[in-house]
């Protein structure tokens, strides 16, 4: 396998916390490899540890065991080479949209002149369709627009990877679909590698090249990986009309249901 095929490599990743009754093992033996430019969705039941995995890749949580290698270098702590989009946009309410994006841009591109840094931040906001909202504060923006700023803030830094933790979980269905389009547009244009946590089956099928399905915790790991063969660029219509769509959807839901209600023999074991 070439370097590009193993752009992100999670190897035997584990996370456990000390708990009153022994040790709580959240994730154990988590293996995942992501190609450069690939869009991978991590799907699983809530509380299974998918956000923990993302947080470890982001460097916000220290793995208990195993390692993460991104573009040939082991990850140690958070850094601007991984843009993170949180579930809540976490914008700073006292700054305009532009200032929020500039916060990271100023730090990463500190050697560039101010005008150029403003341009980088503004371009990122244009890219997510916020032409008229540069000088608005988060309080004046809708939830969907705020999350657009969150996305702009993440990819304005030209990161190697985009990490998204259920970024559309708090939005209504229509806004969510709109933002999925924005995200896929940005991902495609920037040629960025993306890892996204979600529990929405349709969202995963629309966005991802591959869907990694996680087993239910404790000691969650990747249970199976589903290739999504839909051609790109995708339109929602084409995806829904694709002959394999319902079969893929079935297998995803089947896996999740099995995790929720394990068959008797597996339960006994």
């Amino acid at each position: 396998m070439s370097e590009a095929d193993r752009y992100l490599e999670c190897w035997q990743l584990a996370k456990s916390y000390p708990a009153p009754a022994g040790t709580a093992v959240i994730v154990e033996g988590f293996d995942l490899t992501v190609r450069e430019g690939e869009f991978v969705c991590l799907i699983g039941h809530s509380g299974c540890g998918k956000s923990t995995v993302l947080s470890m890749v982001a460097g916000l949580t220290e793995p208990s065991a195993g390692g993460i290698v991104l573009a040939g270098r082991e990850i140690a702590g958070p850094g601007p080479d991984r843009g993170v989009v949180f579930q809540a946009p976490c914008l700073l309410a006292w700054m305009t949209a532009l200032a929020n994006v500039r916060l990271g841009v100023d730090e990463v591109f500190a050697d560039r002149p101010v005008a150029e840094r403003v341009e980088i931040a503004a371009q990122a906001l244009y890219r997510v369709g916020l032409h008229d909202a540069l000088d608005k504060r988060p309080g004046e923006l809708s939830a969907g627009m705020r999350q657009r700023v969150g996305i702009a803030r993440a990819f304005a830094l030209s990161p190697k990877m985009l990490l998204l933790d259920e970024p559309f979980g708090m939005l209504d269905q229509l806004t969510r679909m709109e933002l999925q389009e924005v995200l896929i547009d940005v991902w495609q244009r920037e040629g960025i590698t993306a890892l996204m946590v979600t529990h929405d089956v349709d969202e995963a099928l629309f966005l991802a090249d591959r869907v990694a399905m996680m087993t239910s915790g404790p000691a969650a790991r990747v249970g199976a990986i589903l290739e999504v063969p839909f051609p790109r660029p995708r339109s929602r219509r084409d995806v829904l009309d694709h002959p394999d769509y319902y079969a893929l959807r079935e297998s995803l839901i089947g896996f999740l249901e099995e995790q929720a209600h394990p068959p008797a023999d597996q339960h006994a074991a």
């Binding site: 809540a88 976490c90 730090e107």
Partner: peptide, 22 residues
């Protein structure tokens, strides 16, 4: 807010920027 501090960590803000901006 923990999330805001996480933002600071992800963006690798310096101590001074973190204090004054966040």
């Amino acid at each position: 807010d923990r999330d805001h501090l996480n933002v600071a960590r992800v963006l690798r803000l310096g101590w001074w920027t973190k204090v004054t901006k966040i």
